[in-house]
Design a binder for these strands. Structure first.
Lengths: 123, 123
DNA sequence: ATGATATAACACCTTTTGGTTTTATGTAAA
DNA sequence: TTTACATAAAACCAAAAGGTGTTATATCAT
């Protein structure tokens, strides 16, 4: 519920490389707009727009100190991304990923496991 | 190195809700374009564009079988997102996050811990 | 061969995005 | 009280995003 309160999706907020870089900067320490701007080749106005988007996604918060507006990282919403990702981790954590997921979620799957006899041709 | 080979950033690829839904569908099983389209209220052409973006981000692969083009999930590039996220996990895993990160990464930080004298005005 | 199906390739449209410059406002310092 | 600084707000712009419809091509089934 900042100035705009327009609810930006966190996935969209982190889609832009400049905004990700802003988050990285703020991870080190909170910074006023001018300090953030000095790290980029773009105008202050453009940086402010990015900050508003990040604020609307609740990824940063800003508070005024004197004539400066200090922005601070607020990483909470990133948990949504983490949760989303966790669903896909099963697909690279083991080779049987697809099959495993099918078995676990689709009760109607008729899955026949063919148990091979021990190889008696050897020895 | 698909048809377009235009290298789409994975963060941008997953920014769109429709594309995330496509990934979720393909997580269950590989599907032809028509089957994917039937899950959305948008045109086939629009779906194909989303698939191309996902393919350019290497998140899906497509192969032709007869007259159908079958798309399959290829979750590998999501590790990039996971790595990016892991950097920020420290910020919600413990309360001292900001300070801890500063101490660990900035060797030049002159951090003075002011040890207060026991309060002798009391008692 | 013919017709239905599945995709591909275009051309086009509207809204959003990421950027600019300009103008105004509040605060600190001389 | 000027002057400089830091931000805010507004108008504007080009390009990209997300969508549409049309047309063409390849394949499967009759």
């Amino acid at each position: 519920m900042s100035a705009s309160a327009e609810k930006v999706d966190v996935f969209q907020a982190i889609a832009d490389p400049t905004r990700r870089e802003v988050l990285r900067l703020l991870a080190e320490k909170e910074l006023p707009i001018s300090a953030i701007t000095s790290h980029f080749p773009i105008s202050r106005t453009a940086v402010v727009k990015h900050l508003h988007i990040l604020a609307d996604a609740d990824l940063v918060t800003g508070h005024k100190v004197g004539r400066e507006k200090i922005y601070r990282l607020h990483p909470g919403p990133l948990t949504e991304v983490k949760q989303w990702l966790s669903f896909y981790e099963q697909f690279w954590n083991n080779k049987l990923s697809m099959l495993k997921h099918l078995v676990e979620t689709d009760g109607d799957t008729a899955l026949t496991i063919v148990q091979s006899e021990p190889d008696q041709t050897r020895k």
